[in-house]
Design a protein around this nucleic acid. Structure first.
Lengths: 249, 249
DNA sequence: CGGTAGTTTGAAAGAATTCAAAGCAAGTGG
DNA sequence: CCACTTGCTTTGAATTCTTTCAAACTACCG
């Protein structure tokens, strides 16, 4: 719950970065990469730590290098909804706005590659390739948000859980440039409460449905944060979506 | 339910266009506007007509000039969720993708200002001002989608209805550069079923909650498609959001 | 005037929530 | 090394809200 800025000295070169070809820097060539390199710095957060609070000033934007963060929105009476899940290569922050619209929390240990806001905005103006990539990523996020609308509006608790697992499996596979098939292991770096906040459920319902899926043989649990899926296809069917594979792009 | 392309001959000049300063062309100067003017054409749809079906080829992008359209997603078993509501000045279509991701339906009579895809994409590459405006609009849409996630995930049926009315009132006011206050009239160009699809409810629940809000004196009905709100503030309270006014920007 | 599409209302059923209690795993301190 | 606390999770029982199924109502149109 603390918000200590953990600025890391490390100036790792972009060359070997695990998100080099999926993040906002994906299409950059060496010159642009150099400019980014000049304005970047790393920050590390522990699971549970807050990155920013809604309405806080935020003087940087960032790419998620590793770990996971949640964007969270609240009603005054405390009801909480996660409105975004940031996985490696996802972009955090909004160019042109220096106040955070959402509370951002690390749901697992998190490493951010941060860019100071002003220089980054200048870069966006001068480098169409970076701006174009950001537009592309924003459109992808919008599509993802719209899929989430379908999930929240129309899926049963059981389908919601299955869908979350499918999404995590697909994202994990995409980073490794693979396609999820057959027996797979999904790491689930979320508490039951965080899952509930993401799925629009209570944590009790999440727990119950996890148990139900386990009893039905759709998943096996290896500790609380690791799920074994004997048949990915069967999980997709439980998720209620059409069976055709999601975009691997 | 038909999909007749209704191409209008009219070549209205951009100058007096009602969405001139909010749409994707907002920041254009005369030269860029000229280029847009060369590639534009109008299409008109009647309430209930489909603009495109999900997975259809779509060779244009467009701005909504007047009327309202819904983006809709479906599960195989027929459950339907509206995932976007396009109001005047909103942008339709995704540059760089020629296949519609969602079914688009006119919920009221609709006028689109269409741009042929290829020339528009070329313009995006060459005119940072247009690309920048599109990025800005996409980020706004993403924020709106995230507000919708909160609504679908955590609000009661009654709050959902109130929220929809608040949003329509705010959008209507924004176009007229006003702020909604006191006694207002909201036009509601949606059937109960479309409202249900948008709110993740059944049409019966929508109808019941409309009646409840009426009995509570929060709204009055003038026909089915026109709502009188005696006190906008009271409606906002019913919506469950914090009271501070939404962005007028 | 009858037909249709859309809407409202009622009663019963169902899914998820709420409230409550117990279980489990990891870590701390005696 | 064990007792105990703490944070998270699981399970149970009762309640609540929304849905489902059914029927009636309304306004518009030919």
């Amino acid at each position: 719950m603390t918000t200590d800025a953990a600025i890391i000295a490390t100036q790792a070169p972009c060359e070997n970065c695990p998100i080099r070809y999926r993040a906002v820097c994906a299409h950059c060539e060496s010159e642009e990469l150099g400019e980014l390199e000049d304005m970047k710095f790393y920050r590390r957060y522990e699971a549970g730590q807050n990155v920013v609070w809604a309405a806080d000033r935020m003087d940087f934007v960032a790419s998620v290098v590793s770990g996971m963060a949640g964007l969270t929105q609240q009603l005054e009476d405390g009801r909480t909804q996660m409105v975004g899940l940031l996985l490696p290569s996802d972009f955090l922050g909004r160019p042109g706005r220096d106040v955070a619209a959402y509370t951002v929390t690390a749901t697992s240990d998190l490493l951010l590659c941060c860019f100071r806001r002003k220089p980054f905005e200048k870069l966006l103006r001068e480098r169409p390739r970076v701006a174009g990539r950001l537009l592309e990523m924003t459109l992808d996020e919008l599509d993802a948000a719209r899929d989430w609308l379908l999930l929240l509006g129309r899926k049963s608790a059981r389908e919601k859980i299955a869908s979350l697992l499918v999404i995590l499996a697909r994202r994990e596979a995409a980073l490794l440039r693979r396609r999820p098939e057959g027996r797979i292991v999904v790491s689930l770096p979320l508490t039951r409460e965080a899952m509930a906040d993401y799925l629009g459920l209570t944590l009790e319902t999440v727990s119950r449905q996890m148990s139900t899926l386990k009893r039905a043989g759709v998943i096996e649990l290896d500790g609380k944060r690791r799920v074994i899926v004997p048949s990915f296809g069967a999980l997709v069917i439980e998720s209620g979506d059409d069976s055709d594979g999601g975009p691997l792009s």
